[in-house]
């Protein structure tokens, strides 16, 4: 579920546009609500132990994570033991990947020779599905958090890296020439021209990476020491606690959606000019 077309903080807000946003909002949540209703009815008719009605899943969801005392904002202890470790390792691995991906991407994108050299390697390594590498990460880093964070970072660095390379390469030559005419030093060229030009592509890579990070996080938690949302889901499935399993899945959906929306918000702030420049104004 992407949020590319929502206009967070557009340039010139007009009432007409607010109406449109309201309609879009209603359409999006309406569809989700309809899906819930269909699920509820179908589950009640089927009456299968594996597919409980959504109302019972949500009830269990609240019980598991949102029924704590008021002084912890109603969050339960389960949040601290299940969700926080998962989120930390996911965002940790993703952040490492973003920083490394952008730095390496800029270096590779700026140099033709380096690019010709390492690009085949990148494309080869990237083609390996990360779960297949779990055994190797096991051997190298054990079954704990380091293994998981590294696996996530490894899996999600590629979209950022490749998009950064692409973004850096597609910097307008006339912008670089303008920099030369006005005597920009290297730092100014990098932060003032190269990085802003590549920002839209870098953000696109970051978004893909974020969704992959969620997937790899779950996979990494299904092996090794039981810890995090992934192990909650797997453990529940093994002991036939279907409501717990579905709650975990629902939680993943919500997390993915919220994180993506947050990133989209930051993106639209930073690259506001990009959408405007492409669409023009009228």
């Amino acid at each position: 579920m992407t949020a590319t077309d929502t206009s967070w903080g557009g340039v010139a807000q007009r009432p007409r546009r607010d109406f449109r946003r309201l309609r879009e909002f209603a359409a999006r949540w309406g569809a989700l609500f309809a899906l819930g209703v269909v699920w509820e009815i179908a589950a009640r008719i089927a009456d299968s132990i594996y597919f409980p009605p959504i109302s019972r899943i949500m009830h269990r969801f609240v019980e598991l994570w949102l029924s704590g005392p008021p002084n912890t904002l109603f969050l339960t202890e389960g949040v601290a033991t299940d969700i926080v470790p998962s989120l930390t390792r996911m965002l940790g691995g993703w952040s490492i990947a973003v920083v490394l991906g952008v730095l390496l991407g800029v270096a590779i994108g700026r140099s033709r020779t380096l690019g010709d050299f390492v690009e085949p390697i990148i494309h080869f390594v990237r083609a390996i599905p990360p779960p297949a590498l779990i055994p190797i990460f096991f051997i190298l880093l054990g079954i704990g958090n380091e293994m998981r964070v590294s696996l996530i970072a490894f899996a999600v660095i590629w979209p950022v890296l490749l998009n950064t390379i692409d973004g850096v390469r597609s910097v307008e030559t006339l912008h670089l020439d303008t920099g030369r005419v006005f005597e920009f030093d290297r730092r100014k060229v990098f932060f003032g021209i190269v990085l802003p030009s590549a920002a839209p592509k870098i953000f696109a890579g970051m978004r893909v990476s974020l969704s992959v990070a969620l997937i790899v996080m779950v996979i990494s938690e299904m092996v090794g020491r039981p810890d995090g949302i992934g192990s909650v889901i797997l453990g529940a499935q093994r002991t036939f606690r279907m409501l717990d399993m579905w709650s975990g899945i629902l939680l993943l959906g919500i997390l993915g959606y919220v994180l993506n929306a947050l990133l989209a918000l930051v993106e639209s702030r930073v690259t506001k000019w990009h959408r405007g420049a492409r669409e023009g104004v009228s």
Binding site: E172, D177, T178, V181, F182, A199, T271, W273, H274, A277
Partner: peptide
């Protein structure tokens, strides 16, 4: 200083 023929691509849109 040089004013380029393709001014629209020489201004920084950001």
């Amino acid at each position: 200083a040089l004013v380029f023929q393709d001014y629209s691509r020489s201004l920084f849109p950001w």
